[in-house]
């Protein structure tokens, strides 16, 4: 197994609050991994450490064996990590296709001087980028909305545009921060299918934060559970579902006992 991301003993504090506390995380290449946990568990902080928004106070993060903690975010992006945001952060005044073109920025070689004189290289590069952007918009199902300014797009389309922008940089790892937040059940199902399809057709490793357990249990190969900044469980969906500490974290200490009782009762009924 090749690890796309290998985080070891990552810690990040804000003043007196330890948002992420000595967390180890391994995301296997080609997998869909999820990070779950109650609100304020440190999921997004861990994400921000991986994508370079925060520099961890201690610990190391490797991306395909190469240490990335401490690099500027644009350098990390160049390494092949792309992300989306919990609260959608598009370039609002730009059109859909321009947002995707910005995603391709660091692959374009021509300079501003070439842009002024429209050299052949600049022209070809620009054409190629445009074709790719349109193709990506088709892929996420936004064909026909290319020229719409991002702020005018409906909510679901904005989420998909954000993914298209992230995909435009040809990432090896895609970080999705609550991709189905604010969606109705049907949209959620579409998004779930879309993420699966993404992994299968584009061979991208996906790491996501998600609150919708239906989605998480459906698509994850591996789940990591955080609570108060600590990793409390890790494993396959079925293992997590029956993990005592996870149930405690979500529902309180009494709930674990209750659920145990409930399970026993169910077995009893099953026998009777």
């Amino acid at each position: 197994m090749i690890a796309a991301v290998q985080a070891s003993q990552v810690t990040k504090c804000f003043g007196g609050l330890t948002a992420v506390n000595t967390v180890d995380l391994i995301v296997p290449k080609g997998s869909i991994s999820s990070i779950i946990g109650p609100n304020g568990a440190g999921k997004t902080t861990l994400f921000n450490c991986v994508s370079g928004f925060y520099v961890p106070d201690s610990g190391e993060i490797q991306f395909f064996g190469q240490p990335i903690s401490g690099l500027a975010t644009h350098q990390i992006s160049k390494c092949g990590i792309a992300r989306t945001y919990q609260n959608i952060r598009l370039f609002k005044e730009m059109t859909a296709v321009e947002n995707v073109l910005v995603g391709q920025h660091h692959r374009m070689r021509s300079t501003w001087i070439e842009a002024i004189f429209h050299t052949p290289r600049y022209y070809q590069e620009e054409q190629k980028a445009l074709e790719k952007a349109l193709e990506l918009l088709d892929f996420v199902g936004l064909s026909g909305l290319e020229d719409t300014p991002a702020y005018n797009l409906p909510y679901g389309a904005q989420r998909r545009l954000e993914i298209a922008r992230a995909l435009a940089s040809d990432p090896a790892l895609l970080l999705l921060d609550e991709p189905t937040a604010g969606m109705n059940p049907q949209e959620t199902d579409e998004m779930t299918a879309f993420i699966k399809n993404l992994r299968d057709t584009r061979e991208i490793t996906i790491l996501l934060i998600e609150h919708d357990m239906r989605v998480v249990m459906d698509i994850s190969d591996q789940i990591t559970v955080l609570d108060y900044g600590m990793k409390i469980a890790e494993g396959k969906p079925a293992e997590i579902q029956s993990n005592q500490r996870v149930i405690e974290a979500y529902l309180g200490p009494g709930a674990a006992a209750l659920s145990e009782k409930f399970r026993r009762k169910k077995t009893l009924y099953a026998y009777s």
Binding site: G52, F53, T73, I76, R89, F91, M94, E98, G103
Partner: peptide, 17 residues
Amino acid sequence: RAWIAIREDQTVAQATG
């Protein structure tokens, strides 16, 4: 486009490469 992206959201622009 890079300039306008920076104007719109500098943090995201940098994370976009």
